[in-house]
Structure formats: C-alpha cells, structure tokens
Design a protein around this nucleic acid. Sequence first.
DNA 1: TCTGGGGTCCTAGGACCC
DNA 2: TCTGGGGTCCTAGGACCC
Length: 425
Amino acid sequence: MPRQAFALVDANNFYATCEKVFQPELATRPVVVLSNNDGCIVARSAEAKALQIPMGAPIHEWREFCDRHDVVIKSSNYTLYGDMSARMLGVLQDMCPEVESYSIDESFLNLTSLRDHTQLGFELRRAIRCRTHITCGVGIGQTKTLAKFANFIAKKQPFWGGVFNLLDQPAEMMDGLMSGYPVDEVWGVGRRLSKRLNEEGILTVLDLKQADPDRIRVRYGVVLEKTVRELNGLSCLSMEEVGRPKQQIMASRSFGATLTELLPIRSAVSHHIARAAEKLRQQNGLAQHVYVMLRTNPFREQDLQYRRTTLIPLAMPTSDTRVLMAAAMAGLKDIYVPGFRYHKVGVMLGQITDAGVQQQDLFSQPDDPRRSRLMSLVDQINQVQGRGTLHFASTDLDDGWQMRTGSRSPRYTTCWEELPVALCC
DNA sequence: TCTGGGGTCCTAGGACCC
DNA sequence: TCTGGGGTCCTAGGACCC
C-alpha cells in the first residue's frame, strides 16, 4: 500500500489579494480588509503585515496608524471572495481527483494515488496563479496535520519557493524544524490548549509530537490525542466529502448602531431567518429547531450586560420561511427585555434533516406541496434578479440594524453593473 | 463612537429507562 | 423492607478552525 500523502493549498493573504487583483493600482500598497460591520482587521496584504498591523485588531484603534502609513482600508466583499474561491477550487478539481474545500481560501488534496508530489505542488501553484492571479502556498505531508504544518513552513521559509514537502525530508530534519516553532502553530492547538500544554513543559511542535498519546487523551481528550498521532504520521483525519449538508445553519450580524427598540430587531431577525431558510432549502433540508440569540455589546463594560438564547421546537420539520419566521418572532418576544442597549441578534436552524427522507408524524398532515413550490419560486426569482428582490415585508419594518460597509469594492465578477472596465487608449 | 460571522466536534451532566 | 448501576439520549457550553 502506498504511503499516504495529503496536501494543503492555501491562498496567501486571500481577501487582500482579491482586492488587488481587480485594482492593480494597489499592487504595491499595504491593504487591510475589515470584518463585517467594519469592525476588525481580518486580512492584511504582505505590505500591511510588514507594518506589523496585527490580525484581528479593532480598526478604530488602528485607523490613525493606517492613515499615517497610507494603508488602504477595505470593507469585506464576500461576494467577490466567494467567487474567487470557487475559481481556485475549480483549478484544483481539474488537476486532482480528491479535493476537500476546507475554508474559503484553503483546500486539502489527497495525493496518495498520484506521483511526483512536489512537482505537482509547483504545477498547482502555477495554474492557480495563471488562472486567478492568486498566489498559494502548498504543504505536503503524510497526514492532514502534517500537510498543514508543511504549508506553514512553505510560507515562513521563502527558500522553498512556496511548496514544501515533508515527505522529501529525513526524520532528523523534520524534528529539527518542529523544535523551532511553538506548539500553538499546530493545527488544533489554540490559545487555551497551548497555555495548558506550556504549563506542563510542552513548548514546541516537537514536544507535542513526542508526547505520550494515551496520557494526552486522559488529560486533554480524544481530539488532541489524534493530533499527536497525526504529527507522528498516523492519519486519523480523513478527507471530508464535499458538499456535506450542514447540521446547523446560522445567520447573525452585529447592528450598525446600538438598538433599544424591538421593531428594528424584529426586522433584523426577519432578514436573518429569510437568509438561513434560503440556505436550508439550498441543501434540500428541513429544520425542526429555531434558536434566537440576542445580546448587548460585551466590550462596553459601562453598559448593563444581557445575553440570552432561546430554542423553539417546531411540531414538524420545515423549510418554509413563514413557519420559521413565526417561530423566531415568538422566540424574540420571549427574550427581548426593554431597557438594554442591544448589539447583535442571530438565528440558528437546528435538527436538520434531509427533505427526501422526512418522517411523517402520525397525527399531523403532510407538508402542503404548494408551500414548497412557493418557497422555491421565491428562491428562483431572487437567484435570477438578485438577492432580496422578493422578500418579506417584515424585513422592511425598520432598517436601523443594517451594518456598516463604508468602503466595499465592487462585486467585479458576479454583478453586471459592477464589472471592471478596461480602458483602451 | 467604533471590537466579525459561521461552522465543527467533544464532554459533562441531567433525565430517563430497565 | 430492601432503593443499584449501566446505558442512552439530550442539551449547554467550551474548545477549536478560518
């Protein structure tokens, strides 16, 4: 049996690069991209990283710095990034039989059945660069966790030309590399875990690799045990099938400004439910639970804090926006208390089942087929005419909740009115 | 003034059953 | 009169990821 081989392909500075692809005048300038609602910095171009602007920093603490250093600040444009991501995935799928899209800018590949992995890595990198103008790093290893670590090395050490294959390296070299980086660089080791690990002397990636997996299981659980085994070349994490239906679907947003009244919050919930229900129907699912979450701003310590979640079970699983909406509104009514300065509301659909294998309740009527026809009509119209063309009136009640997107770039690749224009002289 | 959103998996603990 | 213990299901919460 051939040795297993996985690759992780990861776009460099993905959001910032997407912005640069369509605005060549930004090519050499530092660019940062903000989270929804223009809150934090979630992506930085290489130039912005060189200025030591940290990931996740609130922009209001850095705006003056950015102005001083002529940093371009962009609101996030997920329509553009999503489309660029799909193009990258297309290139990978053309060249590899087994691809798992892990996040908007990363994919795992199973290379076990292929040869010349390092060369393939360079070819993938060239093809993506050529077809999307996005530069990727490629890491290759015997397990997903090792591929992830190899990808990290590919980015940290430019010497390798963007492709690093751990399978080519002798064991001593691998251990040498691992002893040079802190344990929190391992995929699956976050802030809390690394603090605990550090306290018992596990400081580097190598320390974790050499830890006793049984002991790790007892102290930290089965997830970290798998990580230790993966670092030692035993594959415990398989490729996930692409397009697996979600088990829960969320839609939530912070408000553009603090809200105290119920009406605009109802509007936001209405908007979120419509979006979540559309996603639910896209995966041909039915939900039986609706959660509503409402909270104040935890960063405003001077404000009285409040956060509550409520679960509304439905008698029958459904994907009908109107049923889900009624449940969510009832939930919101339960948890809304006047007198707080609210910051965010969200909904989540849970207990999701496949509409194709729905079980009928002995005492209730089957779902009216006219309902689902109406919903799919709404979805079709919105798909062709643009999101939100046909929507529920309750969404319009009060738009005081809408988020800020002060400096979003055009949706160059998905919206006719916003196509880039080429000027010929 | 201004601090994201959307997901997964695991575990602990309570309820319930036999 | 004696009042156990193991299995399963569910939920909330915590950790992680990007």
